[in-house]
Amino acid sequence: MAEVLVLAERSAERNRVRRATCALLTVARRLGTPAAVLGGPVEPASLAALGRFGAATVYSVPAPEMTDHPVSARVEALVQLAGRRPPAAILVASGREGLEIAGRVAVRLDSGILSDVVDVTAGPDGPVAAQSVQHGAYRVESVVVRGTPILAVRTEHITVAPAPVTAVVSPVRMTFPGRVRAVRQVGRDRVEPTELSTAAVVVAGGRGVGSRAGFDLVRRLAAALDGVPAGTHAAAEQGWCPAEMQVDQVGTIVHPSLYLALGVSGSMRHRTGMHGAGTIVAVDSDPQAPIFELADLGAVGDVHRVVPELLAEIERRRSPTPEPEE
């Protein structure tokens, strides 16, 4: 069976193989023999985790370029590996870096790229991808008809399942052309986000938070996620939050990567101010609340009970003690 190249990633903090990678390996197995491509050296824990999800080979690219110029170096690595032995497909987790890598590799290999892939099956002429279009209003099935199929997968839609094999490390020595160094990271900007209109993460409270004291949960969750707290007009009118925090067309229109709505029913007025958010998560006690029509993840529950649990869970995940896998 032909190899399926999977771009593997580890979390920066704990150097653990990401769940997204396990999800890619899970679907890669349907298309051929998975081979993980990993930047940096492979330590035993990563090798075990990759093998557990079916990676027969781990191409380890130890070059410093993989850390210093993550996007362009991964493009080179995938292009060079695909050139050695044509894979059945190349799988990348959707995301800002993943989409850029996938797009560039597609051009280099003159191969079709499918984005927003939520499921993959093996067809007679290669992978058949299910794509979620217009926030799920359509499910589209597509195939690649030229080159190596390149799939940018929204891995949160994939249920991860192990299928253990013994992974073999194959170190890859490669020389990079000078242009991989064209984009330099010149800093990290850890400035406190305060400006609602430009915030990356917004946590908003609505009528469901119930009181000024309840609104404190909104502020605490915003702080835990490096985000900015906000409120609906209902919350602002009740005086639970200041008017500057109001999200809608008369308040502020926001475009965050993540919008977390707590006790927000999702009136038309409020939705106008936030429907452009990248990812929307809603916690509300009413399963019929219109906010769930917009949400990528809906959590049905009482804000006053779910949010404290969520804060505790975030705290637990950030504590340094390693937890067992899966």
Partner: peptide
């Protein structure tokens, strides 16, 4: 290099909210 095979509208109240988490807090 890509070909669309089918496009199926998905009706129902929450198109992309595939996951509605319920249960204990």
């Amino acid at each position: 290099a890509c070909a669309v095979r089918s496009a199926t509208p998905r009706r129902g109240r929450r198109p992309d909210c595939d996951v509605l988490a319920m249960g204990d807090p």
